[in-house]
Design a protein around this nucleic acid. Structure first.
Length: 591
RNA sequence: GCCAAAGUAGCUCAGUGGUAGAGCAGCUCACUCGUAAUGAGCAGGUCGCGGGUUCGACUCCCAUCUUUGGCUCCA
């Protein structure tokens, strides 16, 4: 195939480059705006947002003087205020409140700080029970301050802007109404919370609203439908994923790469059953600890079977099939193992939280001496994998021994030290979650930032001091004695379903060619080119390309539009010219 | 669980106490097309499920199921 950038491509190589660069710059500017703001600016925005919350409270009291006010802090990107209201709010109320707020801002009243005694405060807020409660919660000896703007006074530590002139009447937007328990305790009354976002000016607000729209456009549930990738069917079982042909193509590409890299990295691939007798789960401890999140038992031949929630006991069965020498270790056994877990109906969410999913699981059986090297390798492999899929911003979390745990202290210490050493060796930034490990061993979790700066947990590497014990795993050491191997669980992508969801959002559905469902769309200009195109499709398929051919009777314009809607990276447009001259119009996807 | 919103055609969404609507997708026909939607026609729905009010309910009321967002950020 030959490209013809001059004739066929709207965006030649050079302009394509500058286009991509321009996009990258825009992206950086945006990231900078949301993440890289200097502390001073951030404080300023926080003050603006907090003051905006006061203005909103004033507006609400103007409309409903009998409302009781609770708290109104600034939050990331905005603010909220909680109210106890005489009636539920509607969207129309939000508009009215917004109008009142704009009027208050334009009136340019000042924020006055005053320090007062507790008694004065008690008199001032006599008919505001929530404020009285907050007042009582202020430690003795601490100053009690109030802020007043216009007719509104709030118990508040501050700081605030000097005047409502410092707020932008078109730099804020009320976003939603939600219920929230007073002080976050479900035994308390539920208050009405109004969320808003606030910025220095209308332009910043618009950038932020664009950002929200961008997140919405990237939603994998929406793109999954639009790009015909997968579906879920409530009537066939919530939380169970149906991979359509186009989604399956992406999965195949992921899995193919995954398998190849595992072979290269010294792993063996295994396959194990989807169900097992209760003996497995009694021995592993799952029936004790996780019965509620397992699919219920199936009875057969006077035995109870369970769908597997984990692959570990199955890999252990392979290990236990024969006696092992220290010379054979380490074993690195990987499996794309499909497991089933009962997640609460309310917790299900698209591909991110499902009931049946495929883990890219592996178990390493190692001697104590091999532990350090194996951890370093697993971590290096994880990073390689994440980078390969376009995730370059990785942060590690090390979780250490919790209060209730199994295994000897010296094993925990050694394993935790090995994890830290490996993370440092790879130069990763990390946080330590003291006491956050599972009862059976410490772990490293890797979180990545996606294209718009959201964090996702993907890889996990966990030590296990529990299962080797429970299943009585041994190997014969140099001196002829039987010893206990260490076991490491690890998943690099996590679950294929969730990973696919994250990938879709990361790329906003425009996958790089090696992952794209269709790499090339073959588009005949007219019916006379159909046979040529079919032959070309066969040839390209034969060479391993994922292709789509458009044999509809649509106009050429429509065919190009459809291919671009499906975010196909390349289009081959075939007409008389191409068939006679072996010259192909080659059109890359533009965004 | 609680608060709020939503559930109407495959998809996205209008709609009214009196025969159910659009766009896209689908099907048929015509056009045989050269770089971001060719035109015309046809078909498609127990208006989430169950009760109630009413002469009449998709619409109003009650109950229920499901989905979405929030309930962690603390004057």
């Amino acid at each position: 195939m030959r490209a013809s950038p001059e004739g066929g491509s709207k965006v030649g190589p050079r302009s394509l480059c500058s286009f991509v660069l321009a996009l990258a710059r825009m992206r950086l500017e945006r990231l900078f705006l949301f993440e890289g703001e200097s502390m001073a600016k951030e404080m300023n925005l926080e003050t603006i947002r907090h003051s905006m919350a006061h203005v909103m409270a004033e507006a609400v009291l103007e409309i409903m003087p009998e409302a009781k006010i609770a708290i109104g802090p600034s939050i990331e990107n905005g603010f909220y205020y909680d109210f106890d209201l005489p009636r539920p709010l509607t969207d129309a109320d939000l508009e009215t409140i917004t109008e009142h707020m704009k009027a208050i801002i334009k009136s340019g009243v000042t924020f006055e700080r005053k320090e007062i005694s507790r008694d004065e405060a008690r008199t001032l807020f006599a008919d505001q029970p929530y404020k009285l409660e907050l007042l009582d919660a202020i430690p003795e000896g601490e100053t009690v301050s109030i802020y007043t703007q216009g007719k509104f006074t709030d118990l508040c530590r501050g700081p605030h802007v000097e005047s409502t002139k410092d707020l932008s009447a078109d730099g804020f937007k009320l976003l939603s109404i939600a219920g929230a328990y007073w002080r976050g305790n479900e035994k308390n009354p539920m208050l009405t919370r109004i969320y808003g976002t606030a910025w220095r000016n209308g332009k910043e607000l618009r950038v932020y609203l664009d950002h929200l729209a961008d997140i919405e456009k990237r939603d994998h549930r929406k793109l999954g439908k639009e790009l015909d990738l997968f579906s879920l069917h409530e009537e066939a079982g919530p939380g169970l994923v149906y991979w359509h042909p186009r989604g399956a193509r992406v999965r195949q590409a992921i899995e193919e790469f995954w398998r190849g890299e595992h072979y290269k990295n010294g792993y063996e691939l295994v396959y194990t059953p989807h169900v097992g007798k209760s003996w497995l789960w009694e021995t592993s401890g799952h029936l004790d600890f996780y019965k509620d999140s397992m699919y219920p038992k199936m009875e057969m031949d006077k035995a109870d079977y369970y769908a597997k929630p984990m692959n570990c006991p199955f890999h252990i069965m392979i290990y236990k099939n024969s006696k092992h020498s220290y010379r054979e270790l380490p074993f690195r056994w990987a499996e794309l193992g499909t497991v089933y877990r009962y997640e609460k109906a309310g917790a299900l969410h698209g591909l991110m939280r499902v009931r049946g999913f495929t883990q890219d699981d592996a178990h390493l059986f190692v001697t104590p001496e091999q532990m350090d090297d194996e951890i370093v390798e697993v971590l290096r492999f994880s990073l390689y994998m994440l980078h390969s899929f376009g995730f370059n911003d990785v942060h590690a979390y090390i979780s250490t021994k919790p209060e209730k745990s199994v295994g000897r202290q010296e094993d925990w210490d050694a394993a935790t030290a090995a994890l830290k050493k490996a993370v440092e060796k790879e130069g990763l930034s990390y946080d330590i979650d003291e006491g956050g490990g599972a009862f059976y061993g410490p772990k490293i979790d890797l979180k990545v930032k996606d294209a718009i700066g959201r964090e996702w947990q993907l890889s996990t590497v966990q030590f296990d001091f529990n299962l080797p014990e429970r299943f009585d795993l041994t190997f014969v050491d140099r001196d002829g004695s039987e010893k206990r191997p260490y076991m490491i669980h690890r998943a690099l992508l996590g679950s294929i379903e969730r990973f696919f969801g994250v990938l879709i959002e990361h790329y906003a559905g425009a996958f790089p060619p090696w992952l794209s469902p269709d790499q090339i769309a073959i588009i005949p200009v007219g019916e006379s080119a159909f046979d040529y195109c079919k032959a070309l499709e066969k040839r390209l398929r034969g060479e391993g390309f994922r292709v789509a051919i458009d044999l509809s009777d649509d106009r050429l314009n429509a065919k190009i539009r459809n291919a671009q809607k499906m975010k196909t990276p390349y289009m081959l447009i075939i007409g008389e010219k191409e068939m006679s001259g072996d010259l192909t119009a080659f059109l890359p996807r533009t965004s």
